[in-house]
Simulated scan of single mutants.
Amino acid sequence: MNQSSIPAVWMRGGSSKGLFLLAGDLPKYERERDKVICRLFGSPDLYRTQMNGIGGATSSTSLVAIISESEDPEFDVEYVSGSVSIDTDVIDYSGFSANLSAAVGVFAVEQGLVIPDKDGGYCVKILQSNINRQLNVYLPIKDRQPLVSGNFPISGVSGTGAPIKVELLEPGLGKLGRVLSTGQTSQLLDVPGFGEVAVSLLSAGGNTVFVRAADVGLQGTEFARDIESKRETLNLLELIRCIAAVEMNISPTIEFARSHQPSSPKVVLVAKPQAFVSAQGQTITAQEQNICCRMLSGGLVHHAYTGTAAIATSVAAQIPGTIVEQLAVREEESESCIKIAHPGGIFAVDSSVNEKGGFWVAEKATFTRTARTLMIGEAFYMD
């Protein structure tokens, strides 16, 4: 045969979709494993369509989840998350998809990796291997299977589903769980050809660069097409991202960040709460949001908002002096549930943030998603 196949499950988790694979079905060595995954997705593709694979050609649909049973008795399963580049043969493992985490819980039960002992609420304990943190995914169970149908809507996804609570423990990725990547609430980056740009660099859930939308000539209410039509703005934001990656010590050079880590850090454009019409035609008022944001991943504007960026935004909103905190509107300083407005609507994240020993840390972050299996079968790739 000139094609090979591998057992695969295509799933939606939150506002993302990904290919779920069991680690035992993949080649043992990382280089060979990643070659197979790229071929499954149809990458690299200079047409940026992934037409010769199953990838969806966007940052939220070109994701892989590699699942295995955990050898650690503290966890049920282990979850490796990869962002598959569209036009190169690179898979970025420097961050993870928090949206897909909800689907990891569903997958674990449906595949028999976890067997609930009763109906009702059930917690699947997941080791998120990319960042070495614990995820708790709380599933509604009926007849010992995940209940995925329900009336809970999430922005960025048509239809409704059963609510699935996702809880990330100790989301701070810095030393001793610190959430400020450089220890500063905000700082200036020197961007060649542009000048100085104020940013806040957060390592909470995922590595994230926050920039005032106004500082790069935007309002913060634009849709993807509005921003992506401005090639100079996209190039500027990518350069800011790469400079920030070096500043955050997650990339050795700007070029390495550009070529090998296209999905981390994320870039978030921040603005004060303001009314706009969502992608579904609904009016989002300023009163129902704490902050208005647009987010880029893999060089493209996300149609909604990633879970990791939402965690970082929620944390940043509670730390005095960050760009997010300066622009956010909260009724009380103790308000921990931050409602983030994005092109698809509102993403609410509740995070517990405290200052300890002069450093900011986060104990946990919680949000609610929906998830379901879309396809089970064999995925083919060219030998």
Rank of each mutant, 00 (worst) to 15 (best):
W10H: 01
C292H: 11
S229C: 11
L236N: 10
I323P: 11
V211R: 09
S181I: 00
S336K: 05
D76E: 08
T308Y: 04
G357P: 13
M295A: 13
S83I: 03
G358C: 09
V353M: 07
I323S: 03
S200M: 00
K230M: 12
R12I: 08
K175E: 12
Q274W: 03
G82P: 06
F107N: 09
V324L: 01
W10R: 01
C38K: 04
M375N: 01
S149N: 13
L374I: 09
E32M: 08
G195T: 07
V137P: 09
E325Y: 08
K364P: 00
Q134E: 15
V64W: 07
S158M: 13
G205A: 09
T221V: 14
A224P: 03
S334Y: 04
V124R: 00
T208R: 04
L169K: 10
L218Q: 01
I291V: 13
I240C: 01
K272I: 03
M51N: 07
L269Q: 02
G377Y: 09
G281Y: 06
T58Q: 10
Y79C: 15
I37C: 00
K35Y: 01
S5C: 12
C337H: 07
L100G: 11
G172N: 10
F194C: 02
T253F: 08
A108M: 05
Y47T: 12
S15V: 07
I338S: 05
A362T: 03
L135Y: 15
A108P: 15
S4F: 14
E170F: 15
V77F: 06
A102T: 10
S297P: 02
Q187H: 04
V64Y: 09
G344Q: 06
Q287L: 09
D350W: 13
F367V: 00
H260Y: 14
L237H: 05
D119V: 10
A102I: 03
K356L: 08
N2S: 14
S149T: 14
V77H: 03
G206R: 02
T185C: 10
A162L: 05
P146H: 08
G13M: 05
L135P: 11
I86P: 14
E167Q: 12
K364I: 08
Q184A: 09
T322V: 05
L237C: 01
V270C: 10
Q274V: 12
